[in-house]
């Protein structure tokens, strides 16, 4: 058995749909998980709220709590005007959350461990901020980069810093999620290989294999925390960035 902790991130093309100037667009394992995640989210929320009961059951409580959790998050960071972005933040949170948690199940594929996915989501957020900011406030949106009350001689530097920090947002937003997912899954896999490798040696190996085995148990718990936390961080930062689109003045 080859030690290959990277294999779990391999894209497998199931069906090639079309090919344009050498670029293949295929239905892959990643695509299957994306579609599956959307289906799981939609059917769970629909099923959970099927009763529309006045006193919610367990599943309806989960649906309502996720709704109120994200609604509060958006309202706290972006204000009542920011609630136009509530469906976006809700979709982003649930998409990343379910993708991260599903990815922890053995033999599954983690779509958020691919930089292109997290980068696209981050660019969607920043693109929304820019487009909505200019649409709503016009050139006033540029005041985002010009804090008030800064001495004139410092202003160029401050503006430069603001621009750089704004541009670094999509990079940090996408890299944080990507790196956390990737590193966690590789670490899990490496320890799993230790168990298998030591276990094939013999009786002493079996004894030694218990150590990485307990390590995997602990790491799985940690990764579950990271998966939930990263989805939360992604949603919170999205709300905070969207606040700039709603209220560009500092």
């Amino acid at each position: 058995m080859t030690i290959d902790p990277i294999h779990q991130f391999e894209i497998q093309r199931y069906v090639e749909l079309l090919k344009l100037s050498g670029v293949s667009v295929s239905f892959t394992n990643s695509a299957a998980f994306m579609v599956g995640i959307v289906a799981v989210i939609f059917f769970f929320l629909t099923y959970a709220t099927r009763g529309r009961t006045l006193v919610p059951g367990r599943m309806q409580s989960v649906a309502e709590m996720s709704y109120e959790f994200i609604a509060k998050m958006v309202r706290d960071s972006a204000g009542t005007e920011g609630m136009v972005f509530f469906p976006l933040v809700f979709s982003l949170f649930l998409f990343v959350f379910v993708a991260n948690v599903v990815g922890l199940v053995p033999y599954t594929f983690t779509i958020t461990a691919h930089i292109v996915v997290t980068a696209a989501l981050a660019l969607l957020v920043i693109g929304t901020v820019i487009v909505y900011g200019f649409y709503k406030h016009g050139t006033h949106f540029l005041h985002l980069f010009v804090p008030s009350g800064v001495p004139a001689f410092l202003l160029p530097f401050v503006v430069l810093i603001e621009v750089v920090s704004f541009l670094s947002r999509p990079i940090s937003l996408s890299l944080r999620l990507f790196a956390n997912m990737l590193a966690g899954h590789i670490a899990l896999k490496v320890f799993a290989f230790f168990v298998v490798g030591l276990g094939s040696v013999g009786a002493l190996g079996w004894l030694g294999a218990t150590l990485p085995f307990f390590m995997i148990v602990a790491l799985t718990a940690l990764e579950l925390l990271v998966a939930v936390l990263q989805a939360y961080v992604f949603a919170v930062l999205t709300s905070i960035y969207l606040n700039d689109a709603v209220h560009p003045g500092h």
Partner: peptide
């Protein structure tokens, strides 16, 4: 390309 297009399709649907 595959990942982006399917992300757009699935996230758009979501």
């Amino acid at each position: 390309a595959s990942q982006l297009i399917w992300l757009i399709v699935s996230f758009g649907a979501l």
